[in-house]
């Protein structure tokens, strides 16, 4: 009897995310946005772009930009290591790569565990913060890839610094 109900509810009210880490903080992208996750290959630098644009890379014949999310969030650069990954994200008609410190596996989080970002955060120019979620012991910041990586929005994100550096301890 009650063995039927809970899965149904959970299925309808949960979403899948890809979790990743930058400078110890855990973030989420919605899985629908993700095309693939690659180990960072050769990246060609391009001129006249902000420092957070690492350069362009060849993804099976298509040229995609690679953005270092550390630098985008105003954090100091860090050498790539064995855990460094590039998340290939589809933003509108564009395909872009995001360099992150590490990627954890796909996570399913019930929708009721996701709390929308407080107005103070959003007003800070951090429109790319979609919300916060707790899964187990971890607190994740859910990022909206579209507004984060929109070429017009990139500059704004950069100015605003790390999204959610001080996430509310108890989401209201």
């Amino acid at each position: 009897m009650d063995s039927v109900r809970p899965p149904e509810v959970r299925q309808a009210a949960s979403a899948q995310f890809v979790g990743f880490e930058i400078a110890g903080q855990k973030y989420l992208f919605r899985i629908e946005r993700i095309q693939e996750i690659i180990t960072s290959g050769s990246v060609t630098r391009v001129p006249d772009v902000p420092a957070y644009v690492v350069g362009v890379s060849n993804l099976r014949g298509t040229i995609i930009p690679v953005i270092d999310l550390r630098l985008l969030f105003g954090l100091p650069a860090r050498e790539s290591d064995a855990n460094t990954r590039t998340i290939v994200v589809n933003v509108g008609s564009r395909t872009m790569g995001c360099m992150v410190d590490a990627v954890s596996q796909v996570i399913r989080i019930p929708v009721d565990q996701i709390h929308s970002a407080p107005d103070s955060v959003v007003a800070d120019g951090q429109r790319s913060v979609e919300g916060f979620a707790r899964a187990g012991d971890d607190l994740f910041i859910l990022l909206d890839a579209t507004s984060l990586l929109d070429p017009a929005g990139l500059a704004g994100v950069h100015r605003a610094g790390v999204p959610g550096v001080t996430p509310p301890d108890k989401a209201s």
């Binding site: 290959g41 990246v43 391009v46 006249d48 772009v49 362009v56 298509t62 040229i63 930009p65 070429p151």
Partner: peptide, 25 residues
Amino acid sequence: SLDENFMRIRGLGGASILGDGEVCL
């Protein structure tokens, strides 16, 4: 094209892929 996935950069007409897979400007 560079702007297909990214943006136009003044002075660059696009990019290309070399024999070893490297992107050149």
